[in-house]
Amino acid sequence: MNVDNLSPDELSPDEKRQTPAFSTSLKQIISFAITFLICFATWIILSGRLDFFHLGLGVIACAIVARLSSTKLISRRGIENLPRQWFRFVCYVPWLLYQVFLANLHVMSLAFNPRLIEVIDPKIIRFKSKLTRPMSLFIFANSITLTPGTITVFVSITGEFTVHVIDEYSGLSLPGEMEEKVAELMGE
């Protein structure tokens, strides 16, 4: 099942320019191992049984999953600075949660507003983002969807965003602070 699933960000144009820290086969092994470890941690949470038999079944299942999709989960490019990215991601999540909470209060006040029709003013806005990697585009797009009155309509692979906003106030903050945060997170 795993013939040649190259993902777009594995073979970026600038890969030839930078000198890789690890060789390709080593990277393959590392990405397999990381996938296996993530899967095994998930398995232990799911299973909740720590006896020998169930852990053995877990090893087999995780090996199958890692074999099927190690190139899907962990991109082989940029595997060197993975721990730093994850640490930054953990720092990003609480900020995002706070923003999501504010967004929800805003939408909530709209939903219970008796003069709803007069308050909202839906429209489409477009802007160009400086982010380039698919992963950072993905994080940014989903963060936009979760935060104040905005839903991502379309993202092109070059970073052009089309966003549906519910009222004037919501569209003001785009791209703004969140883009900075995501750029810093992914090291762009």
Binding site: C39, T42, V65, L68, S69, K72, P134, F138, A141
Partner: peptide, 18 residues
């Protein structure tokens, strides 16, 4: 090619399989 749906499925499919 939809970046958001592709990335989500790349992340989610292994865990659904597991």
């Amino acid at each position: 090619n939809d970046v958001i749906i592709n990335m989500t499925c790349r992340l989610v499919v292994p865990f659904v399989q597991l």
